[in-house]
Design a protein around this nucleic acid. Structure first.
Lengths: 199, 199
DNA sequence: TTGAACTTTGAGTATACATTCCATTTTTGA
DNA sequence: TCAAAAATGGAATGTATACTCAAAGTTCAA
């Protein structure tokens, strides 16, 4: 028997021995990407821009990440998860909590929301699996919404609650998209109006 | 007084003297773009692909269009308008007609719908005005929906009907986006469920 | 202290793309 | 038939991008 230190040299399987300095570099890169995406959107967040802000050269980036897209997806997912009202899924969040969290995400990080849409829509052709990942996230969210609905109305069937949740989330997504088209749109007011139809 | 034959040589103001052959070339290019967008989406619809299919060279393209984006926007708008249940706006379409037309557009031209989202979302940064154009189109559609709602329920105020229409259209857009993420999703069923909440 | 594994550098590669240019050809009305 | 205007071919341009690689530097456990 022997201890295998390194199997392949793909970054994905790394993590046999991580040096501190590499871990720090990784988080500087992630931070840089998060900032740039929030400030200027996807177009402006080039590899060069990310590396410049992180104070790193392209080679270092590719020592730590497989691709730029991998990083972007990671940042978007982290942003989405960061505003979850009940990260542990204890089943104590109300529909209202969930809707407010959604509003918070969209209004506080509109650029990230836009990036989310861009990556999801372009990614489906891109066989990159980005769409699949976002889909899984969406499905978890639908379950959360459906559970909250059932908790407040125990007579509601599982199936019906799922359908209701899909429609409500559809409305929220659509209104968010609407808002990205025209920031003058009263996003919050319309979201509350939509939510009111599902209590 | 004199007859002005040509003001500027921008393609936009052309059309003082159009040769037949140029008109034909133009529509071959538009057809090629429409087909390619429907078949393979935006990514695959390069200028070269368009010109190849139209049997034309790049120079001819730019003799007729200012940019590739102009053409893409034109094709998308034409596709959207093509399925309008009441193009003249006679005010005779019911909410149901409008919803069915929406379903038809999304299910029959899913790639074009995806392109619509892509152009709208990326275009807002792009100062290209694509977002503004789509916004105007969206607003007209909201009015249509609101009018139909008022027709079937005369007690409904104008303001309320507009809000309801925005929310319903938001739901339709969101569900369409959801469907592009996963074509196994029961888009039509959920749209009908959404519409049922607004009768 | 040593040295193998890890990290960084930064110039270099690959390449895909929209757009321009202009000489040549075709159309059109007079 | 003629000349002006429009259309065409297609090579060339310019630019922006993600990504690679070999060599040099750094870390850290033994």
């Amino acid at each position: 028997m022997f201890i295998q230190k390194r199997k392949v040299d793909s970054p994905i399987v790394r993590a046999m021995v991580r040096y501190q300095v590499g871990i720090q570099t990784e988080s500087r890169i992630v931070d840089a990407a998060r900032e740039l995406l929030a400030e200027n959107g996807l177009e402006a967040t080039t590899l060069k821009a990310i590396c410049d802000r992180a104070g790193v050269q392209a080679g270092s980036f590719y020592n730590l990440f497989d691709s730029k897209e991998e990083l972007v997806i990671r940042v978007v997912r982290e942003s989405i998860n960061a505003i979850d009202p009940d990260p542990d899924g204890d089943g104590r969040d109300t529909l209202d909590d969930l809707v407010e969290a959604y509003i918070k995400f969209i209004t506080e990080e509109p650029e990230v929301a836009r990036v989310y849409i861009q990556v999801a829509v372009t990614g489906s052709h891109n066989h990159s699996g980005a769409a699949a990942r976002f889909l899984r996230h969406h499905e978890r969210r639908v379950e959360r919404f459906a559970d909250a609905m059932q908790r407040s109305d125990p007579d509601l069937g599982t199936k019906e609650s799922m359908v209701k949740a899909e429609v409500l989330l559809g409305a929220l997504d659509g209104l968010a998209f609407r808002w990205t088209l025209d920031m003058g749109f009263d996003f919050v007011g319309h979201v509350r109006e939509a939510a009111a139809r599902f209590v």
